[in-house]
Lab assay of single mutants.
Amino acid sequence: SGWQYDTQCSLAGVGIEMGDWQEVWDENTGCYYYWNTQTNEVTWELPQYLATQVQGLQHYQP
């Protein structure tokens, strides 16, 4: 899939279920990364769990 979410945008106002994931701001890069509080996994790309929800939002315009 060529769909890419801009990680400089916060998910805070989007209104999706974050589940075990937390969004963390990284000052050095000026982007958010994502931290799974259960598994301690850290990812710079939007986790599939969140990406599926964001893509499903009608009002979200990339």
Rank of each mutant, 00 (worst) to 15 (best):
S1Y: 02
G2V: 10
W3Q: 15
W3D: 12
W3Y: 13
Q4S: 12
Y5I: 04
D6I: 07
D6S: 05
D6Y: 02
D6M: 07
T7Y: 08
T7Q: 12
T7D: 06
Q8V: 08
Q8F: 07
Q8S: 15
C9R: 12
C9F: 12
C9M: 12
C9A: 14
C9D: 13
S10R: 05
S10F: 01
S10C: 05
S10W: 00
S10Y: 02
L11E: 03
L11R: 01
L11W: 05
A12S: 11
A12D: 07
A12L: 06
G13T: 12
V14N: 11
V14L: 11
V14C: 11
V14E: 12
V14W: 13
V14D: 06
V14F: 08
G15C: 08
G15Y: 02
I16L: 09
I16V: 13
I16T: 03
I16H: 01
M18F: 06
M18S: 02
M18Q: 01
M18N: 00
M18T: 10
G19Q: 05
G19W: 00
D20N: 07
D20E: 09
W21F: 06
W21S: 01
W21M: 03
W21I: 00
W21E: 00
W21Y: 11
Q22V: 13
Q22T: 09
E23G: 01
E23M: 00
E23D: 04
E23L: 02
E23T: 02
V24G: 06
V24L: 11
V24Y: 09
V24E: 08
V24Q: 14
W25I: 07
W25F: 09
W25M: 10
W25H: 07
D26H: 05
E27M: 05
E27A: 13
E27N: 10
N28G: 14
T29A: 15
T29C: 11
T29I: 05
T29G: 09
G30K: 14
G30E: 11
G30C: 08
C31Y: 11
C31I: 05
Y32D: 00
Y32T: 01
Y32F: 12
Y33C: 08
Y33G: 03
Y33I: 03
Y33K: 13
Y34Q: 00
Y34G: 02
W35N: 12
W35A: 15
W35M: 08
W35T: 15
W35K: 15
N36A: 02
N36Q: 10
N36G: 02
T37I: 12
T37P: 07
T37F: 09
T37Q: 13
Q38G: 11
Q38K: 15
T39C: 06
T39V: 00
T39A: 04
T39P: 00
N40C: 03
N40M: 06
N40H: 12
N40P: 00
E41D: 07
E41N: 05
E41C: 04
V42E: 13
T43F: 05
T43P: 00
T43V: 10
W44P: 08
W44D: 04
W44V: 10
E45C: 10
E45D: 09
E45L: 08
E45T: 11
L46F: 04
L46M: 07
L46T: 07
P47I: 00
P47E: 00
P47R: 00
P47T: 00
Q48T: 13
Q48H: 09
Q48I: 07
Q48Y: 15
Q48W: 04
Q48K: 14
Q48L: 13
Y49L: 10
Y49H: 14
Y49I: 14
Y49C: 11
L50P: 01
L50I: 08
L50A: 00
L50G: 01
A51F: 05
T52Y: 07
T52M: 07
T52I: 13
T52F: 05
Q53P: 02
Q53N: 01
Q53C: 01
V54H: 01
V54W: 06
Q55A: 12
Q55F: 12
Q55P: 02
G56N: 13
G56V: 07
G56D: 15
L57I: 09
L57K: 15
L57E: 10
Q58L: 05
Q58M: 11
Q58E: 11
H59Y: 06
H59M: 14
H59G: 12
H59K: 15
Y60E: 14
Y60M: 15
Q61K: 11
Q61G: 12
Q61I: 06
Q61C: 08
Q61Y: 06
P62W: 15
P62A: 14
P62Y: 09
P62T: 12
P62S: 13
